[in-house]
Amino acid sequence: ETGDREKPVNLKSDQFKADQKTQVRVASGNVIVTQGTMTLRSERLTSREDAQGSQFMSGNGAPVHFRQKLDSGEWVDAEALRFEYYGDTGTLKLFDKAWVKRGKDEVYGDVITYNTTTEIYEAQGGKSGDGRVNITFQPKTKSASQPAAASKPEAK
């Protein structure tokens, strides 16, 4: 949800290292990061801050798994072998065997960029594999709210 980014980031991991000089922090081993409705699981996570206090996170996993609830109530699930997260823009970049699923729609690609603020994602094919992007859009089933199709006129 859009309010997630203002919430504290909770971390769980096997190990943690903080470098006071460079202000870089590395969590490793079963890393679980939660921020509001967002959950990110990875094997390793490195985070640092820029001068303005915006956070930048990167890491890898086998795979990295990302999950977040949208304002619409839907959930977005994403996986990849590597990720980068830009706190100032709320942009999550997924690299290598990237996959995003929103509702029933799915996207595969080598690089998928997902903006957690605008909830827009963009997929790019890469040099590896067939270099193509595969997108599956499921047709929206008629929701119950829509009136049923006019009943057939009775045969006279």
């Binding site: 504290p8 909770n10 190990q15 943690f16 006071q20």
Partner: peptide, 14 residues
């Protein structure tokens, strides 16, 4: 540097 060896739980306030 500070290295925590196990069972790490933390909160980061942006």
């Amino acid at each position: 540097t500070l290295f925590l060896k196990s069972n790490v739980v933390g909160v980061y306030e942006a």
